Amino acid sequence: MCNISQSSPLSELIRCAKLIIWDEAPMVKRFCAKAIDRTFRDIMKCNRPFGGKCIVMRGDFRKILPVIPKGSRADVVNSTINSSYLWSHCKLFQLTKNMQLSSSSSTDNSKLKLFSDWLLDIGDGRIGLPHDGMEEIEVPDDFLIMDYHDPLQSIVEATYPDLLHHLADSEYLTNRAILTPTVEVVDQINDYMCSLLPGEPIEYFSSDSVSIADQGCASFQELYTTEFLNTIKCSGLPPHRLAVKVGVPIMLVRNIDQAAGLCNGTRLKITFLGKHFIKAIALNGTSIGQEVLIHRMDMNPSKSRLPFTMTRRQFPIILSFAMTINKSQGQSMTNVGLYLRRPIFTHGQLYVALSRVKSMDGIKILILDSDKNPTNREIF
């Protein structure tokens, strides 16, 4: 069940709603849909699916499905909403008109049509050769970066040309990002790009602790030292050492003010670095251009296999020159650099990364093989 009481304002809003739109529905686990269904039945006092409310679930099953740590393909498929008992009550509608094509000039239509069809072929698995249960495709040369000395430098220059001359341009930063599958590579790229900017970085260190309920063991301090807690990196948790400069783009990793559009995934640009707060302006979302004050807050890992509950007090931000492919889902940009130092590892990642741009001219791809040499083949 969801924690929504019968007398709460949210409960009243649900009772009054005529239509509820659920965005990116294929990303959630079927148990989430079950919890919503049971809660709505209780609020509406009606035993029909979702309490009789009309719900539009928007999404694309070609994209990334629910994340199951260490799960097999069967585990992922079994967790999706089309494996739920509610799926039989859904009516499927398919969008057939490409709005990107209809809004472009006639001279670009042929290129956009080819790019759109290629993306759909990748998403539907109609392209590539079998490779150990996966598919191997040959990426067209138009997208590839093949001639370089340093792979990191080349992907940065391809995605952020003349970076130092465009730091004051918020639109330039909003419409560009480097995508890669893993957090480790994202951190490496962000640190490299931050080092390119003038000035010394300001460092903010977190305060890490463990829940008092988990401190019953007499040798607790010896088992989980502060130094050990500082090394922990989890999804949705900022790093222990946060090194930033004025002008760098950042991304929120927690909801700060949902009503103002300051949610997890919102990108901002730092304008001032204080001792106890950071000032930034929003680059995307519903509050573009709005000035925001960000303070430290207590955060717990949203998904963690740790045998204890950890709390990290830190600014809820990460650098966003680069981001993981999963984190980019739902965003639209004009220029994307796709850095594949290792193959993608889950369904839909390649399709999501390639579909973040509005045209084929806006994407550059750098693929490295097992020997760290450039290649034009990728497994997905």
Rank of each mutant, 00 (worst) to 15 (best):
L252S: 08
C263I: 14
N230S: 14
R313E: 12
R313P: 03
I250R: 04
G247Y: 05
I232S: 10
P239S: 14
I317R: 04
S302W: 00
M297K: 10
P238I: 10
F277N: 12
A260W: 00
D257V: 08
N230G: 05
T231I: 01
A260P: 00
G247S: 08
F220L: 04
A260D: 12
H276T: 15
C263Q: 10
P301D: 08
F272D: 07
A218N: 13
E227V: 01
V246D: 00
S304C: 14
S287P: 03
F277M: 13
V210D: 07
I318Y: 01
R305I: 08
K275A: 13
K269E: 01
G265K: 11
T225R: 03
K303M: 11
G289F: 03
A213L: 12
F277I: 09
S235F: 09
G289H: 05
N300P: 00
I317F: 07
M323F: 11
P301Q: 08
F272W: 01
I318L: 14
C234A: 15
R241N: 09
R241F: 02
S235R: 14
F220A: 03
M323N: 09
Q221G: 05
G265S: 11
S320M: 05
R312H: 11
G289L: 03
M299K: 09
P316S: 10
P316Y: 07
G247W: 05
C263L: 06
E291V: 04
M297P: 07
E227P: 00
G274Y: 11
P239D: 10
F220P: 02
V253S: 04
S302C: 12
A243S: 15
N264W: 09
C234Y: 01
G289S: 08
K279E: 13
F321T: 10
A282H: 06
L268K: 04
T266A: 12
D298V: 13
N300E: 15
F228G: 01
L252V: 07
I317H: 07
R254S: 14
F315P: 10
K233I: 14
L306T: 06
S211F: 04
C234S: 15
I250S: 06
R267L: 02
T226Y: 02
H240T: 05
L262G: 07
T309G: 03
L223G: 00
T266Q: 03
N255M: 10
P301K: 07
T311V: 15
T286L: 12
V292K: 01
E227F: 01
